[in-house]
Amino acid sequence: MKNLPEKKKLMLVGAGNLCLQILKILAPRNNFQFVVVGRQEEPTVRFCNLVALSAAQLGAYISIEPVVADVMDVDRMTDVLKKHNPDIVMNCASLQSWRIITQLPKHRFEELDKAQFGPWLPMHLTLMHSLMRAVKASGVVTKTVNAAFPDAVNPILSKVGLAPDLGIGNVANLIPATRLSIARLLEQPPEEVSVSLYTQHYFSHYVPRGGLPREAHYKLLYSVRGEPQSDRLLPAAIFDTVRTEFRRLGGIDGQYLTACSAVTVLEGLFSATPVVVHAPGPLGLPGGYPVKLHDGQVEVQFSPSCTRQEAIEINSLCQRQDGIDEIHDDGSVTFNPACMSIFGKLLGYSKRHMSLSQSEAFSKELASHYAAFRNSNG
């Protein structure tokens, strides 16, 4: 009997919608052993059984184990990591999902959304900081993937030696529509078009809704059959085609696209042949980049057309539009006052600076202010 390669062990932290969407894709392929970490026993067991039974319905009998742990309990998570020794740890958890505000009345959502994503940082940084502390304490050699605002969270954690290897979503979510738009405008098959995009969450969030921003910080390179073509089309035409011809469902339904980007990363990390994907926060860098994955290696792709320095500058400028003016050497951040003023007006919550040690307290304060705002708006 032919010896098959041993399946890698994938630990998914946070048994929520994104985790489920990822497992809907990965489980039937049956290429991983799965461990799912949730805070409550009954929902986590039921979650894992749903995945296992659904995979069995498709003829795949998977290994999936529920584990009950609170990510904020560093000692408990350290023990969990030591026991299971995963090859990949992926964080799918946040203290508040990005999509929560989409449930507000439309006019209130639109008002609050103008503050951009940066002011919500403590909701996404807090859990990932705790998880990476546990990874470091465990001594487990593993690849770490972050789904919680990796454009900012990963470079913040890199300042204190806790950077995840890379993130998922955001810049990656814009690539399929961008590639298809270029192919359509050039009248070429999509499989013949290659795209490299350097930009931060703000840009990838704005373009599908509004086309090319008036103040746009990004670098787009594309080729057809290996021949550079980046000067053939007006950028506004490309991104307007993204907005119109390739408009899509968002919100919770849009999580499927994010899950697909996660699958390319999770499967690519230990691919025997090199795979180029797009990912935010690779190796602690701010914003998003094309990344080559191969046999456990992560290599960010730069070129004479977009050097490392240029790409980082582009992403740092775009991050300011997202509400974070600067990430400092100690992991503290300075928020954009224009973005934060919207929070001050609507939520009664406003911060200019935040240290890593303040993230948990700020997240609780922000949650309280948002709950009051939500309740007052029905």
Rank of each mutant, 00 (worst) to 15 (best):
E42S: 10
E111H: 00
V51I: 15
L125H: 07
I62C: 01
R108S: 05
K82W: 05
Q103D: 12
Q33A: 15
R39K: 14
P43H: 11
P66Y: 03
A56K: 13
V45E: 14
S63T: 04
V89C: 02
A60W: 05
I62N: 02
A69H: 09
L127G: 06
H84R: 02
R99H: 12
N49R: 15
E111Q: 12
N49Y: 13
L125T: 03
W120L: 03
I62A: 00
L127F: 02
E41V: 05
D113G: 00
Q103E: 07
W120M: 06
Q103A: 10
L104D: 05
V71E: 01
F47A: 12
I64D: 02
K83R: 10
G59H: 13
Q103K: 13
P119M: 02
R29P: 06
R99Y: 14
K114G: 00
L104Y: 02
L95E: 07
S94P: 00
I100C: 04
Y61Q: 13
F109Y: 15
P122T: 13
K106E: 13
V67F: 05
R29C: 07
M72C: 13
S94G: 06
Y61E: 11
W98P: 02
R108A: 07
R46E: 15
V68H: 01
A93K: 08
Q40L: 14
S94M: 05
I100L: 12
W98H: 14
A52F: 03
L50M: 15
Q57K: 10
F47D: 14
S54N: 14
V71L: 02
I101P: 00
H107L: 06
M123W: 08
L95I: 01
V45T: 14
S94A: 11
A56Q: 11
P86A: 08
A69Y: 04
D87K: 04
E111R: 04
M77K: 04
T78R: 15
V71I: 12
P28G: 12
S54D: 15
N31S: 14
F34Y: 14
Q96T: 06
E111G: 00
H84M: 01
P66E: 03
R46F: 10
L50A: 15
E110N: 08
L53F: 15
G59C: 10
D79W: 10
V35K: 06
Q96L: 07
M72Y: 09
A69R: 12
D113P: 01
L104M: 06
V36H: 10
T44G: 12
A56P: 01
T126P: 07
K106N: 12
V36F: 09
F109N: 12
K106F: 14
K114P: 00
A55L: 13
G38L: 11
P86R: 01
F109D: 09
N49C: 09
S97H: 11
H124M: 07
H107I: 09
K82A: 08
C92A: 04
V89S: 04
S94E: 01
F32I: 00
T126L: 05
Q57W: 14
T78Q: 13
